[in-house]
């Protein structure tokens, strides 16, 4: 997919921030996000502008069961990560079996709002960190068990993080699929980029909004790299 430098930068930094936010607050690497992206791509194909509203509903439908499964049966980060991978594959296959028919779908008229999504997601995350909730979020980031013992409702924040990550991943799919031939795995390479960028950004070991700044810097470098070498 030939995306411009700026588009790459937007998608990378949002995706990486979502992955990182979900990981730090929800306490697992959410590997189902690639499918959320694909869901967004299908939404915009079928529903055009309406998909922004649908994205909100769908992300609840996607995030809530995942959250429940995580809370009920997972014993740790590894379990939850593996579960989320299964969840992602399930969504992918539902898309493939239920929606995709033989031929490719090409999104002729998309929603052009990538910069807006970029700004909105950053405003939300940074706002979250700077709000009165911020201190609790950072507490959870550093030691979830301790936070829970001190009366922070970490489960609620965990759900919020999964929900926000899923919602924006779907939105990313909605706003960046114009002109693309979509398929159920369309989000996979973006998730990969997101994971790599988030992983590189953690080297600096910052918490909260500072980590978001690091992610932006790494994303910038990554999109430059792509621009130059690919």
């Amino acid at each position: 997919m030939a995306l411009t430098f700026l588009e790459n930068f937007f998608i990378f930094s949002v995706f990486a921030s979502l992955i990182s936010f979900n990981f730090r607050i929800g306490k697992f690497l959410n590997l189902s996000l690639y499918s959320a992206f694909s869901v967004g791509a299908y939404l915009v194909y079928f529903f055009g502008e309406l998909s922004v509203i649908l994205a909100f509903l769908l992300s609840f439908l996607i995030a809530y069961p995942l959250f429940l499964i995580k809370e009920r049966i997972c014993r740790g980060v590894m379990d939850a990560t593996i579960v989320s991978l299964g969840y992602g594959i399930a969504i992918e296959e539902i898309l493939r079996i239920g929606v995709q028919k033989g031929y490719y779908y090409v999104v002729s008229e998309g929603v052009r709002a990538l910069p807006e999504v970029f700004i909105a997601s950053y405003l939300l995350l940074i706002g979250f960190y700077l709000s009165p909730h911020g201190i609790r979020l950072k507490f959870i980031e550093e030691d979830e068990e301790l936070a829970r013992m001190c009366g922070v409702n970490s489960a609620a924040y965990g759900f919020a993080s999964i929900f926000i990550a899923t919602f924006f991943a779907i939105l990313l799919g909605v706003v960046s699929s114009e002109g693309a031939a979509i398929h159920p795995r369309i989000g996979l390479s973006y998730m990969l980029a997101g994971i790599l960028i988030a992983a590189i950004a953690t080297i600096k070991r910052s918490v909260g909004e500072r980590n978001l700044v690091n992610i932006t810097a790494v994303s910038l470098a990554a999109s430059m790299f792509l621009e130059v070498f690919v």
């Binding site: 049966i73 579960v83 991978l85 299964g86 969840y87 594959i89 296959e93 493939r96 079996i97």
Partner: peptide
């Protein structure tokens, strides 16, 4: 086509 992946997905989800 793809039904086996649904099975895999379910097994992953309930692996814990």
């Amino acid at each position: 086509t793809g039904a086996h992946l649904l099975l895999y997905a379910m097994l992953l989800i309930f692996s814990p």
